[in-house]
Each structure stands twice: as structure tokens, then as C-alpha cells.
């Protein structure tokens, strides 16, 4: 979900611009450090690939189809730093040329998709790698989309875009469906790529699972924190949205938590099933 300009209140977009700018600089340094020169064209072409791959329709059920979002796929192929950088480049082009996402809101969109989304994909992939490749990649796809969407929703709410309980639940439901779809599509795409040449999927470097789990918990806290904060009354905001019946923070937080918990549960079950089948 790309947030256009005009939706976020000034403190929100300004804060996120200020947070994202140094983060992108850091990511760029890291990406430069761990990549050889031959990766510069690779990163660019992979960005164009994601753009183009989004045009391929994946039929899911009668009459409906989804498409790849690609953050998790890039993370699995290029590693987190390079994936963040490529997604940032895509977001810049989308904001300026394709009218998809705002320019002032670029910080927010970069934060949601290129930073938090990639972090979620990376951590999920590490966290479930022991269970099975497919579960790990499914989790990476699903959680990256869920994280980005929840953060965007939270930021909109904090900015005072009003939503009734029904709408909120409906959007969270939609997010959940897109998250599951992205997970499934990413798994299918990674499998197809691996069949052509397994060397293209970079092996994950060894970070301990405990660290990954803690980082993941931190990320969930950020997402949930955003949702909670979005319910906390902000003086100025309140004044401008008089009469708006905002949903209590409990409901919002619950909704966010439920979505994330469901994906966790799904991945957990998937992992269990897979490892049981393997040991059987």
C-alpha cells in the first residue's frame, strides 16, 4: 500500500522522512560493502524485474487474481541490504514518475516497505529456516506484506484519517488475504527460480535464531506500537477530527495482533507438519 501525499499529518511524514533517510544511507553503505561491482547492474535489473513481474497475474480462485509484490523475493535473492536498496529505488521511481505514493510520504513508504517489510521478510526467513524452505519463504512473503500494510494503516490512523470499526476489520482482513497470497506466490516463484538454477538463491548467512527471534519481537512491537499509538489521543489531531468515532485502541491493537498471530500460527503449524513429515 503506497501512501500518497496529503494523507499523513506533518509530524508523521516528517518523522518518517527523518528516520528513513539515514537508514537508507546505512543500507546503501552496507549494500556497497557486501556486493561486488558486478552487482550494480544486477540490482538495477532485479528492480526492473520486480516491476515487470508485478504484471504477471496469479489466478487465485475463480475470477480473482493476485500478483507478486516482490519484497520478500528480493530479500531471499539479494540479501536484506541490497533488497532494501532496490525497493527504495523502486519507491522513488513510483513516487515521482508513476504517481504511486507521495514524495513527502516517501519516507513513510520506504520505512514500511523497504525497511520494515524487508526486515520482516529477512527475519521470518531466518526464523523458520530450520522447519523447511517453503515455510520460511511463505512466512517471509506473508509477514513482509502484513508488516508494511499494518504500519501504513497505523500511520494513516495516527494522522487522523478516520476509520470505523467495520472498515478497520475489513482492511485487516484484506491485508491478511494479500499477505497469504504474497506468501504463496513468493514460494511458487522461488521454487520456479531454484529449478532453473539453485545458485541464484543466496544461502542465508548464519545468524543465531535467538537474535532473529528478538529482532522479530522488536519488529512486532513496532507494528503493534504504531497501531496503539494511532489510538492514543493527540491533542491537535483530536481537535481537527471532532465527531469522529475512532475505534478504541484495544480494538485496533487486537486487530493487528490477531492478523500477525494468525500468520505466525500458520507458519508454526506449517513448520511442524513439514518437519513431522520429514521425520516420518
Amino acid at each position: 500500500m503506497h501512501i500518497p501525499d496529503g494523507f499523513l499529518s506533518t509530524p508523521v511524514w516528517a518523522t518518517l522522512d527523518v528516520v528513513s533517510a539515514p537508514a537508507v544511507a546505512w543500507v546503501a553503505r552496507r549494500a556497497q560493502r557486501d556486493t561486488q561491482d558486478n552487482r550494480i547492474p544486477l540490482l538495477g535489473v532485479m528492480g526492473a524485474f520486480v516491476f515487470a513481474a508485478q504484471m504477471v497475474n496469479f489466478p487465485v480462485g475463480p475470477g480473482t487474481s493476485g500478483h507478486l509484490v516482490g519484497g520478500a523475493l528480493l530479500t531471499v535473492v539479494l540479501g536484506p541490504a541490497a533488497a532494501s536498496l532496490v525497493l527504495t529505488a523502486i519507491l522513488v521511481l513510483q513516487a515521482l514518475i508513476f504517481q504511486d505514493g507521495g514524495v513527502l510520504a516517501l519516507g513513510a513508504n520506504v520505512f514500511n516497505m523497504a525497511l520494515a517489510g524487508v526486515a520482516a521478510a529477512y527475519l521470518a526467513n531466518r526464523l523458520w529456516a530450520h522447519a523447511s524452505r517453503s515455510v520460511a519463504i511463505f512466512a517471509a512473503g506473508a509477514l513482509s506484506v502484513m508488516t508494511s500494510a499494518c504500519l501504513a494503516l497505523g500511520q494513516l490512523l495516527i494522522s487522523g484519517v478516520p476509520m470505523t470499526g467495520g472498515v478497520l476489520w475489513a482492511s485487516l482482513g484484506l491485508f491478511l488475504i494479500s499477505a497469504i497470497m504474497e506468501g504463496a506466490i513468493t514460494v511458487a516463484a522461488v521454487r520456479a527460480i531454484e529449478r532453473l538454477n539453485p545458485a541464484w538463491i543466496t544461502p542465508q548467512p548464519a545468524t543465531s535464531r535467538a537474535v532473529a527471534a528478538i529482532a522479530m519481537a522488536a519488529l512486532v512491537l513496532v507494528v503493534v506500537g504504531t497501531l496503539i499509538a494511532s489510538a492514543a489521543p493527540d491533542g491537535i489531531q483530536r481537535l481537527t477530527m471532532q465527531g469522529v468515532d475512532s475505534v478504541g485502541w484495544r480494538a485496533r491493537t487486537m486487530a493487528g495482533l490477531v492478523g500477525i498471530a494468525m500468520i505466525f500460527a500458520l507458519c508454526y503449524l506449517g513448520g511442524k507438519l513439514k518437519s513431522r513429515r520429514r521425520s516420518a
Partner: peptide
């Protein structure tokens, strides 16, 4: 089929 398409596209891009 769609996944295969994405796979081949990836290979060509690479």
C-alpha cells in the same frame, strides 16, 4: 504457469 513465467523472467533478467 504464472510461477514458471516469473521464474523464466528472473533467469532472463539475471
Amino acid at each position: 504457469l504464472a510461477a514458471g513465467l516469473v521464474g523464466v523472467l528472473f533467469a532472463r533478467s539475471w
